[in-house]
Nucleic acid binder design. Structure first.
Lengths: 131, 131, 131, 131
DNA sequence: GTGGTCTAGACCACA
DNA sequence: GTGGTCTAGACCACC
């Protein structure tokens, strides 16, 4: 459980935590039913405010990525169900488009970008969550 | 020159303007040396504050997308030169990774995502900026 | 942390702030990782509008001189990396040429001007930033 | 008489004209008593507004670089006398300091900067105005 | 507490 | 007419 958090980035800390957890799940580093560190543990380990970790956990739970069982702790959820939110899809599509355009302005060719994407899928490929 | 701005989105207004201009340039709707609407014009057209448009224009100029000529107005740059900023590249790569993971969680397959990307490139394909 | 701002000068206030911060960094008065006064603090201290300070800070961050950490404040960067922007170089060269010509018109000899330059380098010499 | 004017620069056009004239004088391209093109001539040659040229000429005359003789035209002044304006000196010194600091941030060493200065003096060296 | 965004409205320099 | 700067004051997200 190593977290890579950079307060200098303009991405909010709590979002970085969310991203990290989701990434580790996708890569299979975190397995379903696995226990996550407590809010206090994680916050002291990362040297950030407990509220920040708490907020991240809440959002992760809202997204169905984790579940907290009162008195027992927080766990990776066993049964992740995709939620087809059309607005979410639209947003992702738009973000993707924006990145493509920006990369285009930065001189990145379609081939390079495709290579990047391949790399990401390779990292998470063997551990595809298919439930 | 139709702009689509949504004040309800959590993306800042001025960034939305930036995105739109860059997208229109990439698609060829805006051609090099073409005049953009004046700050006041665009702001009244979009029903937003002139300062907001101004901020967007200034950032676009910083990125080299447009040039402003004193007392005359703002124009699409004719000579866009890519700047290889390693930090920028890293950020884009990370954003891309995040979108892929999020899309993965939303149940989007690699094939679907690749299709999306193809679509974007098709839109901007014929008008590739090649300087 | 004493700032000298002159609203009567034709140099914009926010640029004066930028210059001052960069000068203090170069002289070693401000050290890497040191915290800068908050936007509100500095603005009330200088009796200028917070937005003006904010604009200066944002530009300084863009230049890599400072970093802002969300909810914590702004700090002098610890790792300043030079960016070789050819346009920037050209501009500086031209400004320099102009000053030399103007000083020439004002009757300043090459020797005097060289002495001025020596003085500036002496001020910042011992504290050279060597990222 | 070739003028190099770039409306895209953030330096006002009329200042660019002033700079050019002064530079050409310093280099000896323009000699004392030499006639300058009329406002109309120059403005049409440069494709800029006559008012802009006029403003430049007025400022040049104020600085004593040129003289206009009603009905005859505008000429490079024969007897240029240095004006020791302490405020002007202070401003130049400050501008110089700022350029040095900025160049320092851009990774330019003292040696490089000195070389730049040498080059400028070499250009204007043989034609030093000493009256 | 921090900075970021936005608005409204003013003034100025430039062309 | 153009964009640039500055102020005053508001609201928000983040920590």
């Amino acid at each position: 459980m190593y977290f890579n958090i950079d307060p200098k980035k303009n991405v909010p800390l709590y979002e970085q935590v969310i991203h990290q957890v989701k990434e580790m799940c996708a890569k299979g580093i975190l397995q379903p039913n696995e226990k996550l560190p407590s809010v206090r543990e994680l916050s002291s380990q990362m040297v950030i405010n407990p509220n920040t970790v708490s907020k991240a956990y809440q959002e992760l739970e809202r997204q169905g990525v984790i579940v907290t069982i009162r008195g027992r702790g927080t766990f990776i959820s066993e049964d992740f169900t995709h939620t087809f939110d059309p607005r979410l899809l639209k947003n992702m599509k738009q973000s993707l488009k924006q990145i493509i355009i920006d990369s285009h302005y930065a001189g990145i060719t379609k081939e390079e970008l495709t290579k990047w994407i391949e790399e990401v899928y390779k990292e998470i490929g063997g551990q595809k969550r298919e439930n």
